[in-house]
């Protein structure tokens, strides 16, 4: 009961602030109230296009997360174990990390098909985060454990399985959780700026162009709810993985 109240009280408070602000403004075009937005969200959720758009966006975000993670892991191992790879690749990754996502979206727009831009961008945002987290884990790996593995005649595979991977897991999980949030935000931002045929970002862009502010709010609310729900699921899955 206490937990429900802890969630409900802030929610009711902020919905009330929103409703009062909407009343004060008095124009749905500028600030629709929670009831108008809720009504539009329910109406949209009753259409197939809503779910297809949500599904397509999720696929793109997860595709970006997948390739960004795989590339981040591979490059973290390469830059840790090969000094020449570190000298060559690390500065490039730092440049990627420092570049604003909007610049990347506009640049990638010149080079790849519109439908591919969101997952390419999402992956580009994920890669430096996973690389950074894993590199920190590799750099901080206790040399004493590796010495133990050598003295106790562990094979390389056994050392990797029993010593290295478990030691890296907390770093990897933390990096992946941060990367997931980034993939989601950058993927949708790319969809808004370079709208594919079916996507949440495309619907946001259409709502903006048509001055359908309640729709704009409804789609934004969809993103927030999905982001929080998926992050919660993701966090639970990673914590379970760490425990096992």
């Amino acid at each position: 009961m206490k937990k429900i109240m802890r969630l409900a009280i802030p929610l009711v408070f902020w919905l009330s602030v929103w409703a009062l602000a909407a009343l004060a403004v008095g124009q749905d075009l500028l600030l629709p109230g929670p009831l108008a937005v809720g009504g539009r969200l329910l109406a949209l959720a009753g259409t197939a296009d809503f779910w297809l758009s949500v599904g397509a966006t999720l696929c793109r975000v997860f595709l970006g997360l997948l390739w960004g993670t795989l590339a981040g892991v591979a490059l973290a191992f390469a830059t840790h174990f090969f000094p020449w790879a570190d000298r060559l690749i690390s500065p490039a990754i730092r440049v990627v990390r420092a570049t604003p996502v909007v610049s990347f979206i506009l640049l990638v727009y010149l080079w790849v098909a519109r439908s591919a831009i969101p997952w390419v961008i999402a992956g580009l945002m994920v890669l430096p985060v996973v690389w950074g987290a894993l590199s920190a884990g590799l750099d901080g790996m206790d040399e004493k454990w590796l010495e133990f593995a050598r003295v106790y005649r562990f094979s390389r595979l056994k050392t990797l399985r029993l010593v290295c991977l478990p030691a890296l897991r907390p770093h990897f999980s933390a990096g992946l959780l941060t990367a997931f949030g980034l993939a989601w935000k950058s993927g949708v931002a790319a969809e808004v700026l370079c709208p594919p045929a079916r996507a949440i970002g495309s619907r946001i862009q259409q709502a903006k162009l048509g001055l359908e502010t309640p729709d704009l709010f409804a789609w934004t609310l969809t993103i927030v709810v999905l982001s929080l729900a998926l992050e919660g699921l993701f966090r639970t899955a990673l914590e379970r993985g760490n425990r096992s």
């Binding site: 004493k144 454990w145 133990f148 003295v151 029993l162 010593v163 478990p166």
Partner: peptide, 9 residues
């Protein structure tokens, strides 16, 4: 070899 520290995982 038994290390001076336990070196348990």
């Amino acid at each position: 070899f038994l290390f001076q520290e336990d070196r348990l995982l």
